[in-house]
Simulated scan of single mutants.
Amino acid sequence: MQSLEAVALAAAAVAAGGINAVVGSGTLITFPTLLAFGVPPVMANVSNTIGLVPGVISAAYGYRRELKGQLPRLLRLGAAALVGGIVGAVLLLTLPADTFRAAVPVLILLACALVLLQPRLGKWLARRQDIRGDRDGGVPVWAGVLGTGIYGGYFGAAQGVLLMGLFGTFLREDLQRLNALKNVLAALVNGVAAVFFVVVAEVDWAAAGVIALGSTLGGLLGAKVGRRLPPAVLRGVIVAVGVTAAVAVTV
């Protein structure tokens, strides 16, 4: 990797780490960057997942105050996230590479749509906090976290948006506490997938290392100041990069 590419990837990783802490769509920044530098799609996804793990961990640490009292919930839903993450990672490496290459544009555009819909989703969730939901969520939430984990282990962009929609539907809880829960579960999904990839997959370690450093800084910054950034600007950047990546992959 050339020095200019490393600098560009590091900047993308800082942005991705911050976005993951607040929104949960950082993959739509770093993954297209890797594709632009000529990294094959599956290797780019693997390397990106490994590199983003420290970032999501730092984001979870930054929200540690909002995690107080949520240990039982974390233990129960964390099991679903771990199982889902490993299933998704296995699917990524066992299905033909052409399958992933064909799925990437669809997954990216789906993630972009979720990011665009997030403001309406947030308002809807806020209203539902007053009319329904419970403390545990039961089987629907566990199954939803499992399914989101499978998606996250396979690709992962906007899994945070999916989780927040799920939690807001079934859990009666402050949205910031739900965001903290989302960060921990995303860290578990990325972490277990990354461990699997390290053992059995081909990794671009230079790219993964640059992303790890940048996303760690971004995760800490995002947890502290990310909520002050204009949400419309963040969504605009994410969607612009994502649509460009979807088009580039299909060309």
Results as ranks from 00 to 15, higher is better:
Met1Gly: 15
Ser3Gln: 06
Leu4Phe: 13
Glu5Pro: 01
Val7Thr: 11
Ala8Val: 04
Ala10Ile: 10
Ala10His: 04
Ala12Gly: 07
Ala12Arg: 07
Ala12Leu: 09
Ala13Leu: 13
Ala16Ile: 11
Ala21Thr: 03
Ala21Gln: 03
Val22Phe: 08
Gly24Arg: 10
Gly24Ile: 08
Gly26Met: 03
Gly26Ile: 06
Ala36Thr: 13
Gly38Met: 06
Pro40Asn: 06
Pro41Ser: 13
Met43Leu: 06
Ala44Gln: 08
Asn45Arg: 03
Asn45Lys: 01
Val46Ile: 14
Thr49Arg: 12
Val53Met: 03
Pro54Gln: 04
Pro54Tyr: 00
Val56Glu: 13
Ala59His: 09
Ala59Val: 11
Ala60Met: 07
Arg65Tyr: 10
Glu66Lys: 07
Leu67Tyr: 08
Lys68Thr: 14
Lys68Phe: 00
Arg73Asp: 05
Arg76Thr: 15
Gly78Ala: 06
Ala80Tyr: 02
Leu82Ile: 14
Val83Asn: 10
Gly84Lys: 08
Gly88Lys: 06
Leu91His: 04
Leu92Arg: 01
Leu93Ala: 00
Pro96Arg: 07
Pro96Thr: 07
Asp98Arg: 12
Asp98Gln: 13
Asp98Ile: 05
Ala103Trp: 10
Leu107Trp: 12
Leu109Val: 15
Ala111Glu: 08
Pro119Gln: 09
Ala126Ile: 05
Arg128Trp: 09
Gln129Glu: 15
Asp130Met: 09
Ile131Gly: 15
Asp136Cys: 05
Gly138Asn: 06
Val139Met: 13
Val141Cys: 13
Val141Lys: 08
Ala143Gln: 07
Ala143Met: 15
Gly144Trp: 03
Gly144Val: 00
Val145Pro: 01
Leu146Ser: 05
Gly147Arg: 05
Gly149Trp: 13
Gly149Pro: 07
Gly149Lys: 13
Tyr151Ala: 04
Gly152Met: 11
Gly153Asp: 07
Phe155Gly: 02
Phe155Asn: 12
Met164His: 03
Leu166Gly: 03
Leu166Ile: 08
Phe167Glu: 03
Gly168Asp: 05
Phe170Glu: 02
Leu171Cys: 00
Arg172Cys: 02
Asp174Gly: 05
Leu175His: 01
Leu178Val: 02
Ala180Leu: 00
Ala180Ser: 02
Ala180Asn: 02
Asn183Val: 00
Ala186Met: 11
Asn190Tyr: 03
Val192His: 06
Val192Cys: 07
Ala193Ser: 10
Ala194Ile: 04
Val195Ala: 15
Val195Asp: 12
Val199Tyr: 04
Val199Met: 14
Ala201His: 08
Ala201Ile: 03
Glu202Ser: 09
Val203Gln: 01
Asp204Phe: 11
Ala206Ser: 10
Ala206Gln: 15
Ala207Leu: 05
Ala208Gln: 11
Ile211His: 08
Ser215Asn: 14
Thr216Trp: 14
Leu217Pro: 03
Leu217Ile: 15
Gly219Ile: 02
Val225Glu: 05
Arg227Lys: 08
Pro231Ser: 09
Ala232Phe: 01
Arg235Trp: 07
Arg235Ser: 03
Val237Trp: 10
Ile238Ala: 08
Ile238Lys: 00
Val239Thr: 12
Ala240Phe: 11
Ala240Tyr: 01
Val241Arg: 06
Gly242Glu: 10
Thr244His: 11
Thr244Phe: 14
Ala245Met: 02
Ala245His: 02
Val247Glu: 04
Thr250Met: 12
Val251Asn: 14
Val251Tyr: 08
